[in-house]
C-alpha cells in the first residue's frame, strides 16, 4: 500500500469518526451543562410541574406534550396527502405531468420556513379562527397544518424515490394478470417500499419536531397543557428560542439544555423505532 492510499484511508476514517462523534459530543455537551438539574433532584419537577419561572417552577411537561402533539398531528395530516401526491407523481404520471409537478415539490423544499410562518399567520390563522369560532386561531391545529405543508416535500420526494426501486418484474407481473393501477399500488408497490416510506416518515418527523419558526409564529406559545387541537401550545424549539435568561448560572438557563436533550431523545427514538419496525417486517414482504 503506498503512502497516498494510506493518507486517503486516514482521511476517510477520520471524517466518518468525526461525523459519528459529533452527534455524541453534542449529547454529552447538553448532558454536562444540564447536569446541575439532575444532581439537585429537580429532574422529576421538570417533567411534572408547570412552567412558571417567577415562582421557581421550571416544568417542561406541557412543552414536551405540545411538541409531540404538533409534530404528530402534522405527520398525520401530511402522510396521506404526501402518499397521494407521490402516487400521482411517481405512478399515475398522466401525460408526463408528474415530472413538472415534482419540480414544484422540489422547489417547495427551498422556501425558507419563515415564509411558511408568514403565510400561516396571514392566511391560515384567520381561517382557523373563523371556521372554529374559538380562540385566536394561534393553536396546535394551525401550526400542524403549516408544518404538514413544510414536511410534505420531504415525504413526497422520498416516497417517489422509493417507488422507483420496485423491480419492473413485479410491475409487469401485475399488468400481465390484468391488475389495475390501484391494485398494483397496494399489492406490490407499497409492500415493497415499506422501508423507504418509513425513512421518509422519520425524516419528516424529525423536521417537524426540529422546526422552530413555524411553531413559534403560529402555535401561540402558551405553556399550559393543551386540552384540544384548538388550544395554544409551545414546542421545545420555541421554548429555546423564546427563553431569555441572562444569568448563565440560573436553573432557568440550564433547563434549555434539558429541552435540547428532550428533542434529542424524541428524534432518536423515532429513528430507532422505525429501524426496528422495518427490520422485523422485512421477511414478510
Amino acid at each position: 500500500m503506498d503512502v497516498k492510499e494510506k493518507i486517503l484511508i486516514i482521511v476517510f476514517y477520520g471524517a466518518s469518526i468525526l461525523s459519528a462523534a459529533i452527534t455524541l459530543i453534542i449529547l454529552g455537551f447538553m448532558v454536562v451543562l444540564s447536569f446541575p438539574i439532575f444532581s439537585e433532584g429537580l429532574f422529576f419537577n421538570i417533567l411534572t410541574k408547570p412552567w412558571s419561572p417567577d415562582q421557581g417552577l421550571f416544568g417542561l411537561g406541557p412543552i414536551i406534550v405540545g411538541t409531540l402533539c404538533i409534530a404528530l398531528l402534522a405527520l398525520i395530516i401530511s402522510f396521506p396527502v404526501s402518499l397521494g401526491c407521490s402516487f400521482f407523481v411517481g405512478i399515475l404520471n398522466p401525460k408526463g405531468l408528474g415530472r413538472h409537478f415534482k419540480k414544484f415539490v422540489e422547489l417547495m423544499t427551498a422556501i425558507p420556513t419563515v415564509i411558511y410562518g408568514f403565510v400561516g399567520i396571514f392566511l391560515l390563522v384567520p381561517l382557523v379562527r373563523e371556521i372554529f369560532l374559538k380562540g385566536s386561531g394561534l393553536c396546535i391545529l394551525s401550526a400542524s397544518i403549516m408544518l404538514a405543508i413544510l414536511i410534505s416535500p420531504t415525504m413526497i420526494l422520498f416516497f417517489v424515490q422509493s417507488f422507483k426501486t420496485v423491480p419492473q418484474n413485479y410491475l409487469n407481473a401485475v399488468d400481465a394478470l390484468g391488475g389495475n393501477i390501484a391494485q398494483k399500488f397496494f399489492y406490490v408497490i407499497l409492500p415493497n417500499t415499506r422501508k423507504g416510506i418509513m425513512t421518509g416518515i422519520i425524516l419528516s418527523f424529525g423536521r417537524a419536531v426540529g422546526d422552530t419558526l413555524i411553531a413559534l409564529m403560529i402555535s401561540g406559545n402558551s405553556v399550559a397543557f393543551p386540552g384540544s387541537v384548538l388550544d395554544s401550545a409551545r414546542t421545545l424549539t420555541a421554548q429555546i428560542a423564546l427563553l431569555i435568561a441572562a444569568d448563565f448560572e440560573s436553573i432557568e438557563f440550564k433547563t434549555l439544555f434539558v429541552c435540547g436533550i428532550c428533542l434529542y431523545i424524541i428524534t432518536s427514538s423515532g429513528v430507532l423505532m422505525a429501524r426496528y419496525s422495518t427490520k422485523k417486517k422485512r421477511h414478510h414482504i
Binding site: A173, D175, G178, I285
Partner: peptide, 21 residues
C-alpha cells in the same frame, strides 16, 4: 377494457418474476 383483455391473454416472462410473497 385492457384489464379484461389481459385476464384472457395471460403472459409468462423470460425471467421468473414471482412476487416476494
Amino acid at each position: 377494457d385492457v384489464v379484461s383483455l389481459r385476464r384472457k391473454v395471460g403472459m409468462v416472462f423470460q425471467k421468473p418474476n414471482p412476487f416476494p410473497k
